[in-house]
């Protein structure tokens, strides 16, 4: 191997930086989705690499379901402030109050309600592009999505009619009312994300590391006990040493029993894991096409 050679993380990094700069150059009003989760933490570092020493030219956008882990929101707010970025938060709670999002009676999950909330935010700020941290290895429908994923005036993804994406030539042209979702981490795996966090010494929220938590056994998972889903009589409740592998809402994120309290431990744990990251997300399990259906409506 010669010295003019990139290892896999450097290759993924240069690919992602190129994509982020294309967005800054080709769109009028792009936003960067930042939740405080591990993928968007990498995304922020890549944005720094793409734009420094200038400021990151995009605001940060987060849709708050009201069911976020509090640790995550604290981290999100602090990181955005440290980077000197403008953080825009739009809440599902408000969308429900304004009639933009209409909850399904009896359904506690706000997963689907994120869709109208996000689309309303895109309309409010006239964002023509949203950069997100989704990865193709997360899920089968995502495995089919382009780096530049076109959304029509209704925010819909049409998987059967995607633009060809060739070499590093991304077609970002849209008509008014349409927008683009751009995924610079498309080619990254869960392992790549953690290796990048280790290499770049990136801080992540504490819930990724091992901690004690009271959990309830439900749908073959340990869910964190909280006010939204109080344990029912007869359910098993235990205090366990756990961490999260992927962060969704607090009512649907399975806690993984784990002693891993450093990034090295997490990497060792993932390399030996026998279930995928999203195996601990109840929202993807409802049917084989759960993600595809949500994406067609405008989900990330």
């Amino acid at each position: 191997m010669n010295i003019y050679h990139l290892d896999h993380l450097q290759y993924l990094e240069t690919e992602a930086i190129h994509i982020i700069r294309e967005v800054a150059a080709e769109f009028e009003r792009p936003a960067l989705m930042f939740s405080g989760g591990k993928d968007s933490i990498c995304l922020l570092r890549l944005a720094e690499k793409a734009f420094r020493p200038a400021d990151i030219p995009t605001p940060f956008l987060n849709v708050d379901t009201g069911h976020h882990f509090p640790e995550l929101n604290t981290f999100r707010d602090r990181r955005a402030a440290e980077l000197g970025g403008k953080l825009i938060i739009r809440r599902v709670e408000d969308a429900i109050r304004n009639g933009i999002a209409i909850p399904n009676p009896g359904e506690i999950s706000r997963n689907k309600l994120q869709i109208p909330t996000l689309l309303a935010a895109i309309e409010e700020f006239r964002f023509d592009c949203c950069i997100g941290g989704a990865r193709r290895d997360e899920e089968k429908a995502r495995a089919k999505e382009r780096f530049f994923s076109f959304r029509d005036a209704f925010g819909q993804w049409d998987p059967k009619n995607q633009r060809p994406e060739i070499w590093n030539l991304y077609n970002g042209r849209i008509n008014p009312g349409e927008h683009m979702r751009v995924f610079p981490l498309s080619n990254w795996t869960e392992m790549d994300v953690w290796e990048y966090i280790r290499r770049e010494k990136l801080e992540v929220p504490t819930i990724y590391f091992s901690h004690r938590r009271t959990c309830v056994r439900r749908q073959d998972q340990w869910l964190p006990v909280n006010d939204l889903i109080p344990p029912k009589p007869g359910e098993r409740v235990r205090e366990l040493v756990v961490r999260v592998r992927t962060i969704g809402d607090i009512i649907s994120t399975g806690m993984v029993e784990s002693p891993a309290d450093t990034v090295d431990d997490i990497i060792a744990e993932i390399s030996a894991a026998r279930v995928t990251e999203r195996g601990s997300r109840a929202d993807d399990k409802s049917s084989e096409a759960a993600m595809e259906d949500r994406k067609k409506q405008g989900y990330f």
Partner: peptide, 22 residues
């Protein structure tokens, strides 16, 4: 599905970690 438990030590990271993408 059982929650993934802590890994057996034998299955740790391979000694020569992949460095190249094909």
């Amino acid at each position: 599905m059982p929650p993934s438990s802590s890994p057996p030590a034998s299955a740790a990271i391979p000694a020569n970690h992949p460095v190249e993408i094909l």
